[in-house]
Amino acid sequence: MTPMDRAQIRHVAELAELELTAEEEERLAAEIGRVVAYVSELDAIDTTDVAPTAHVTAAATPGEGSAADDLAGLFRPDEPRPGLSHDEALAGAPRAAHGGFSVPTFVE
């Protein structure tokens, strides 16, 4: 596994909505490159016919059935219930206006 380069880190940072300084790009490319090289050891493990584990519950048996089977019936009824009040929901917002969350312009 080749270490990560700055272009790769910049691409991933853009996907993650992280704006990195040039110094951060360089340092993180090296640090994450080392971790990626380490986790690449998984490559060598034979996982032929092994089902992935997406979640664990006490009832689920490893590698058998899909997540949908294990979690069947876990939906709650789709009924209105009391939640936070409008004011409570907005109380933590850095900026609120006209009864909503205020954000910079995103449609011209």
Binding site: I45, T53, A54
Partner: peptide
């Protein structure tokens, strides 16, 4: 974000989920 990104998902994330089963 990297292990979930296009082109790497199967090699890292899906692989790790399978090893988790083991």
């Amino acid at each position: 974000t990297f292990v979930l990104s296009a082109g790497y998902y199967d090699a890292y994330y899906l692989k790790a989920q399978k090893v988790r089963t083991l």
